[in-house]
Amino acid sequence: MISPLPLVAALGRHALGLTAALGDYALFTAESFRSALRTRRLGRRFLRSIYEQGALCLPVILIVGAFTGLVLGLQGYYVLNRFGSQGLLGALVALSLVREMAPVLAALMLVGQAGSALAAELGIQRNSEQIVALETMGVNSHGYLVAPRLLAALVVFPLQTALFVAVGLWGGSISGSLLLGVEDGVYWSAVERAIEFADVRECFWKAATFGLLTMSVCAYYGFNAHRCHGATGARAVSTSTTRAVVLSSIVVLAADYVITSFLV
């Protein structure tokens, strides 16, 4: 009979490894926030991070937001038309965007652009000894490199999500009013009646949580690129960046489910 012990041992090793990695990530994030308090001239780097995550990612948010609204308008109209409720198109588009699609899609777009850039930049800085150089100068590398990015994410993700919602609603109105003949006033009044404060609060909660989780995961992978298993140099940077983007995307969807189940 084959002994189950090796299988149990392998499972145990994986479980311990996962627990250690989660603990390491939690300590990394906590140290980044703690060191923010002791970092000099944080404001300048915070504004630079706002620019990187905000202004540089604006085009992708506008484009994806507009197309999401256009598609929601089209699909929503054909579904509602079956029940003779085209007047509720504005409500459908608004609630879909605010409660679910805007925070998730905006976060995924920001992971693709700002998150991957962050992981790659930190990975290269690790590779070229820039992070070690900071430590030898007595500069806290978490405070200097990571903290401003995490603080900026807490501000930028909700703002980008709000912009995504605004552009998406406009896209929905183009589909509904201009292309399919729903009255413009009917569309916008349905939007106004549908959205409640609780929906907006949930939207911002989600956006801020996604921002913190995704940027910290990307920073963690880039910062620790030298610890990437089975890869060194440029390969370690590319592997770390890929893992950061994939894991961040999964984290967004998993956290979305958890937050929704608590807030609904």
Binding site: R40, E129, Q130, V132, G138
Partner: peptide, 26 residues
Amino acid sequence: SFLFQSNALFDSLTALENVALPLEQT
């Protein structure tokens, strides 16, 4: 201070910003 084999200069910063970095942060 430490002078690295690879120099470890910050390529996103100018020469002046690189030199000013330890003074700004410490």
